[in-house]
Amino acid sequence: MAGYVHASTGQRGRRSGRLTEPLIVRVLLIAIALGFLFLFLVLPLATVFTEAFASGTAAYLDAIREPDALAALRLTLLAAAIAVPANLVFGVCAGWAIARFQFRGKQLLTTLIDLPFAVSPVISGMVFVLLFGRQGVLGPWVADHDIKIVFAVPGIVLATIFVSFPFVAREIIPVMEAAGSQEEEAARVLGAGGLQTFFRVTLPNIKWGLLYGVILCNARAMGEFGAVSVVSGKIRGVTNTLPLHVEILYNEYAFQAAFAVSSLLAFLAIVTLIVKTVVERRMGAAVEAVPEAAAAPQLS
């Protein structure tokens, strides 16, 4: 659902005393905001790392070097390596079709693209069990052809693609709409081919939005728990992703190991936040650098 919310790029002006709250109110509000964020964001993040190292660095390294943990890491990377490019290609296609052409049902299509955000992760995983499981609609067909999808790697990949489906499209569509199509039309009129127009004109314009979508998509793909948990069957070393491995360790009361593996995912989250912040600044700078292009009215 993160895609509902977009980067904010605004300027903040100084204002005179009468236009703001009294100093005491300001200090109080800042204290409440920071206290709330400390309790709900900083404390959990700090806890992951303190618990991970609670039994020392050696125990930490043992936990993340253990074969099952490494197998889980490999599967998480594999699932993301399939889901992110697939959703990237889809996002670019959807962006081109929706932001560059007028057609009926456009609003419906964008709403349908958002569907995976609205569905509970548990239901996202469950539909693949209903589709490909032993009692599923396509279950007999899948069994006849000796393909294993549910409780196997393909099911995990499918569930990962489903939950991270809208992120790239969601970010690209508004960026492409804001950039407008004049530059591409000019390129076409001057004789550029379709692909040439896309790679030389469109891509440079949307690259930051694209990167932003890919980062969010990747974070969700690597971190998904509910959907993957339903389709995985949780076979250690075979169908366990990192988040599922965390759950197994935790339920076996191996708390320190669970937090050690969690710290890898928390580290991924921090990297995601840093890259996201940098990209947001770049997007903000890009908008400010070409205000005319961004503000120009559409020809159509």
């Binding site: 509910g226 928390a266 989250a269 840093i274």
Partner: peptide, 13 residues
């Protein structure tokens, strides 16, 4: 930047 942590941190963690 930190406000987005719940989007980035896996739910199991």
């Amino acid at each position: 930047s930190l406000v987005d942590l719940p989007f980035a941190l896996p739910t199991a963690v």
